[in-house]
Amino acid sequence: MTEYKLVVVGAGGVGKSALTIQLIQNHFVDEYDPTIEDSYRKQVVIDGETCLLDILDTAGQEEYSAMRDQYMRTGEGFLCVFAINNTKSFEDIHHYREQIKRVKDSEDVPMVLVGNKCDLPSRTVDTKQAQDLARSYGIPFIETSAKTRQGVDDAFYTLVREIRKHKEKMSKDGKKKKKKSKTKCVIM
């Protein structure tokens, strides 16, 4: 069974824990209790493949930012979460993405942009803004509501699919490099 290491990042209060708990335990946590770091595991079937999701729910508070490099190193894919009623959390996505790329030393890291709290009427981040940002990053965008469960499975499952595509691409690139290195030079 394939294991996928997913990391949920975003500013404090955007609903990272609520999304994760909704996926794992099928219930909505409405009281806000700032996370330092929590880890969850769940076995699911995605596109006919049974897999184990190892999900790291991270601290959004700035005082825990020193811990970010460590979990970013171990993560295979990242859910970059903002709240649709919090423009600052949307603007912060850029910083999370840049930090992930720096730590992973790669421009090509599996990510999904997630606009959470889409059940709320007080939207300050337009869907088109988020779609445009995701398009500019070359990553999928999904709106979710941890409260109603809308888009929750889709967000995590899409990230797994992005990781699969990335692994497939990397193995193809690896095979191309191996083929090239088999060419021999004969000096007579």
Rank of each mutant, 00 (worst) to 15 (best):
R135L: 08
Q131W: 07
L6Q: 03
D47R: 10
D92R: 12
E37M: 00
G77N: 02
D92A: 09
F82N: 06
G115D: 07
N116G: 09
E162Q: 11
D54T: 03
Y64N: 00
I93D: 02
K101V: 11
D57Y: 00
T50K: 12
P34E: 04
I100C: 05
K88W: 09
E49L: 04
K177H: 14
A83K: 08
E3K: 11
I24T: 07
M170A: 14
E107R: 11
Q70S: 07
T2A: 13
R149M: 04
I93M: 10
E3R: 06
S65F: 06
V44H: 05
K177Y: 08
Q22D: 15
V160Y: 10
A134D: 12
R164C: 12
G75F: 03
R135W: 09
P121W: 06
K182F: 12
E168F: 05
C185P: 12
T2F: 10
C80H: 08
F82H: 10
R97W: 15
C51Y: 12
I100Q: 01
H94R: 14
S122I: 06
C185K: 15
L19A: 14
Q61A: 13
K172I: 09
G75C: 04
D173G: 08
V9E: 01
V152C: 08
V152A: 10
K117I: 15
S89Y: 01
S89T: 12
Y32F: 02
I142A: 15
K117V: 14
Q22R: 10
Y157M: 08
K88Y: 04
K182P: 05
L52E: 14
H94A: 13
F82S: 13
V125W: 09
S39I: 02
N116C: 14
I142H: 12
Q150A: 12
T144R: 03
A134I: 09
E49N: 13
Y96A: 04
N116A: 14
V109D: 02
V29I: 11
T20I: 04
P110H: 06
G13S: 13
V109F: 09
N26G: 12
T144M: 04
T58M: 00
G60Y: 00
Y64M: 03
V7T: 06
R123A: 12
K182H: 14
I55A: 06
L113W: 14
G77S: 04
V103N: 03
Y157F: 09
S122G: 12
K101A: 15
D38K: 00
M170W: 15
A59T: 04
G138R: 13
D154V: 07
R73F: 07
E143R: 03
K180Q: 09
I142G: 03
K178W: 05
E62Q: 05
A134Q: 09
T183S: 08
V186P: 10
E76Q: 07
V186R: 09
T158W: 13
T58F: 00
L23C: 09
C118K: 06
I100K: 01
D92K: 04
R41K: 10
K16A: 03
M67D: 00
I142T: 08
E143A: 12
D38W: 00
T35C: 00
Q25K: 05
N116W: 01
G10R: 01
C118Q: 15
G48Q: 09
Y96K: 01
C185R: 12
V7H: 06
L19V: 10
Y96G: 02
P140H: 04
K5C: 05
I24N: 09
C51T: 10
L113R: 01
T127M: 07
K117T: 15
E37D: 01
A134R: 10
L19Y: 04
Y32I: 02
S65E: 10
D154E: 11
S106F: 08
V9R: 01
H166W: 11
N26P: 05
G151H: 15
S106V: 12
G12A: 13
F78A: 00
D69P: 03
E62N: 04
D126I: 06
D154G: 07
F90C: 11
K177I: 06
A11L: 14
L159K: 03
D126G: 09
M111E: 01
D126Q: 07
D30H: 15
Q25G: 14
V9H: 10
R102T: 10
V103C: 13
I100N: 02
Q25H: 05
V7Q: 02
K177S: 11
M188I: 03
T74Y: 11
V81P: 03
Y157T: 12
K169H: 06
S122T: 08
G138C: 08
E3C: 05
Y4F: 11
K175S: 06
I93W: 15
R73N: 05
T127K: 05
V29F: 06
D69S: 05
M72K: 01
A66R: 03
K88H: 06
K182W: 04
E162T: 11
D57E: 00
T50I: 14
D119E: 07
S122K: 07
V8G: 04
L19W: 04
Y157G: 11
K177D: 11
Y64A: 00
G10N: 07
V103T: 14
K128D: 05
V9K: 00
R149P: 08
Q61H: 09
D119Y: 13
L120N: 15
T124S: 10
S171L: 05
E62A: 04
D108G: 07
V14F: 13
S122E: 09
T35H: 00
G77V: 13
E91V: 14
A11G: 10
Y96C: 07
T2Q: 13
M188A: 14
K117M: 14
R41V: 10
L23Q: 14
T20M: 04
D108H: 11
T2W: 10
C185I: 14
L19N: 15
D154W: 06
Y64D: 00
F82E: 06
Y4E: 14
E162L: 06
E98W: 01
D47Q: 11
K176I: 05
T127Y: 14
G174P: 06
I84K: 14
I139M: 05
F82A: 14
G115E: 09
T74P: 02
V112N: 01
Y4Q: 13
D126C: 08
H27A: 14
R97V: 15
M111V: 04
D105E: 08
F78E: 00
D47G: 10
T148A: 15
R97T: 13
K165W: 10
V44K: 07
T183K: 12
K169I: 07
N26S: 12
K175T: 15
G12I: 04
N116H: 14
D69G: 04
F141V: 13
K175C: 05
V7L: 02
Q22N: 11
V7S: 09
A146V: 05
I84F: 12
I142V: 10
F78T: 01
D54I: 01
L120G: 14
R97N: 05
T148M: 05
L52D: 15
D119H: 14
L23A: 09
I93F: 11
P110L: 03
P34M: 04
Y157H: 10
A155Y: 14
S136W: 03
Y71N: 00
T35S: 02
K167H: 10
I139D: 04
Q61Y: 02
S89H: 03
V114I: 09
K147R: 09
S136Y: 07
T2L: 10
K117L: 15
D105S: 11
P110M: 02
Y4T: 07
L19K: 15
D105T: 08
H95I: 04
G174D: 10
N116I: 12
P121R: 07
T35E: 00
K175W: 10
C118L: 09
Q25Y: 02
G151F: 11
L53N: 13
T58N: 00
T158C: 09
D38H: 01
G15E: 02
Y157Q: 11
I36C: 09
K167T: 12
A134S: 09
T124N: 10
L120T: 10
Y4N: 12
G138A: 08
T87W: 08
I46T: 14
N85I: 13
V7N: 04
V8R: 01
S181C: 10
V114W: 02
C118D: 14
S171G: 13
R149S: 08
G60R: 00
L159M: 13
A18E: 01
E91F: 06
V8W: 01
T58Q: 00
Q43V: 11
F90Q: 15
R164K: 10
S17Q: 01
E168R: 06
E37T: 00
T124M: 09
L56K: 03
R123C: 13
E91P: 03
V186M: 07
V114F: 10
D153V: 07
I55E: 00
V114Y: 03
